[in-house]
Each structure stands twice: as structure tokens, then as C-alpha cells.
């Protein structure tokens, strides 16, 4: 058997069922300045909120994938104890959205495999997709990403939150990723409100039991920050 490293030991020493949350973030040039600062602050605040909630603390595992003219895993899946707060992201380049989503899904698959191998229970994973523009990466990659996401949603293997940032976000592309509910457009740069809502939702899910009907996400909570 392969050597189990410390991180993995952490994984199965905690019997709580996990909520894997993949944040797939647009860090293209258009995000430079205030948007990226607010986004980073929002993500860090998300981590803090998860940390404070006893149930969410044990359950949530967060990964961050960025996409611009390339894609990168900024933070692989880890419990909030182990996850690093991000200090700052350079926003530059194009918007390889399809590639980004595919990387996020790959990272998710790897994590799910690890859960499965070690016998850790988990909830339906979440994918938070945020962009302020339209995709300009490979069209084939975009198609592949859309296909993968919609299939997983159809199989009830994924919950997606497609979020448009600002007026230039291509909502029609985001809509393709979300066959069951329309994407949401963030009002201004209210990342904090969104992430506060997201952490509350994670906490709510982690109080239920995996396999129970997915708890209804508190849509009323969305009113403050998003418009349909």
C-alpha cells in the first residue's frame, strides 16, 4: 500500500462526512484592481466563517482553482485547519473558463477518489464558478466543461453556483453550466455578502446527513447580493 502522508491521515481520522467546495475563479486582466482585492478578501472571510462554525469546520474542504491565460490550482482540497489563506492574486491575461472548470472538476474527481479509497463519506460536491467576462480559451475545452458539468448535475453528483461579476459577465455562458437554476449576477463587488451566505449554506449542509435530500439552499439569503 502506498504510504499515507500526514494530510491523508487527517482525512480519515475525522469521521465527519465532507462537503467538498471547489472555487473556480476568474483572475483575468479585467479583474485587476478592486475586483480581485475584494474577491481575495471574500474568500478569506469565507475560510474564517467556516472555521468558526463547529459543524462546517469538520465538514468543509475547499479548493481554489484560478483561470486566466492558463489554469492553476491555488489551493488543493483541504480542511479549513490546513488550508492557507490566500495573500493576493495577480489578475492578468485572458479568460480560459472552460479549461478552468475542467481543472476544477479534475481536482474534484481526485479528491472524491481519495474519499472513496479511504472510506470517507461526502456530500454532493459544490462548484462555485465566478467570472466577470466571457470565455476566450479553447472552444472544445469549453464544450467539454459544459458537458461534464451538466452530466454531473443530471446525475445529482454536483451542485453549481455560477456567479457573474459586474455588467460584462457573459451570463448566457454561465447559464449553460446550470441547467436547473439561472446564474446569478453579483451586485457591485459584494463578495463578502456572497461568501457569508456560502459559509452559512455549508454549515447548514454539514448539519444534515449525506444522502438526506440536499437541504434547500436559503434563496432568501441571496436577495441582498444578487439579482436574478
Amino acid at each position: 500500500m502506498a504510504r499515507i502522508n500526514i494530510e491523508n491521515e487527517d482525512l480519515f481520522e475525522n469521521p465527519a462526512p465532507r462537503v467538498p467546495v471547489a472555487l473556480c475563479l476568474d483572475t483575468s486582466g479585467s479583474m485587476d484592481g478592486a475586483p480581485i482585492r475584494e474577491l481575495v478578501a471574500g474568500v478569506n472571510q469565507f475560510f474564517d466563517a467556516i472555521d468558526k462554525d463547529e459543524d462546517a469546520h469538520d465538514a468543509a474542504e475547499i479548493c481554489i482553482v484560478e483561470f486566466n491565460s492558463g489554469t492553476k490550482v491555488i489551493q488543493d482540497f483541504a480542511g479549513v485547519d490546513r488550508a492557507q489563506r490566500i495573500s493576493g492574486i495577480d489578475a492578468r491575461g485572458a479568460t480560459y473558463l472552460g479549461e478552468g472548470v475542467n481543472l476544477a472538476l479534475d481536482t474534484l474527481e481526485t479528491r472524491k477518489k481519495m474519499y472513496s479509497d479511504t472510506g470517507v463519506l461526502y456530500y454532493q460536491p459544490w462548484l462555485v464558478l465566478m467570472t466577470d467576462g466571457g470565455p476566450n480559451g479553447s472552444a472544445a475545452e469549453l464544450e467539454r466543461a459544459v458537458e461534464r458539468v451538466t452530466k454531473m448535475i443530471g446525475d445529482k453528483k454536483l451542485t453549481i453556483f455560477p456567479i457573474g461579476i459586474g455588467p460584462d459577465a457573459d451570463m448566457s455562458v454561465l447559464a449553460r453550466f446550470s441547467p436547473t437554476k439561472p446564474p446569478l449576477r453579483l451586485q457591485g463587488l459584494s463578495f463578502n455578502e456572497f461568501f457569508a451566505w456560502l459559509s452559512k449554506s455549508v454549515a447548514r449542509v454539514s448539519q444534515s446527513s449525506p444522502g438526506d435530500a440536499p437541504p434547500k439552499l436559503d434563496l432568501e439569503g441571496l436577495a441582498g447580493w444578487a439579482e436574478l
Binding site: P15, P17, K112, Y115, S116, D117, L121, P210, G211
Partner: peptide
């Protein structure tokens, strides 16, 4: 806290 039916090779479907 270990769920009796926790085992490797599952897809998390309790």
C-alpha cells in the same frame, strides 16, 4: 463517530 457502513470504494451514497 465512525459510520458502521463506512467503507472504501463507496461514492458517498449513505
Amino acid at each position: 463517530g465512525l459510520f458502521p457502513y463506512a467503507r472504501s470504494g463507496s461514492d458517498g451514497d449513505v
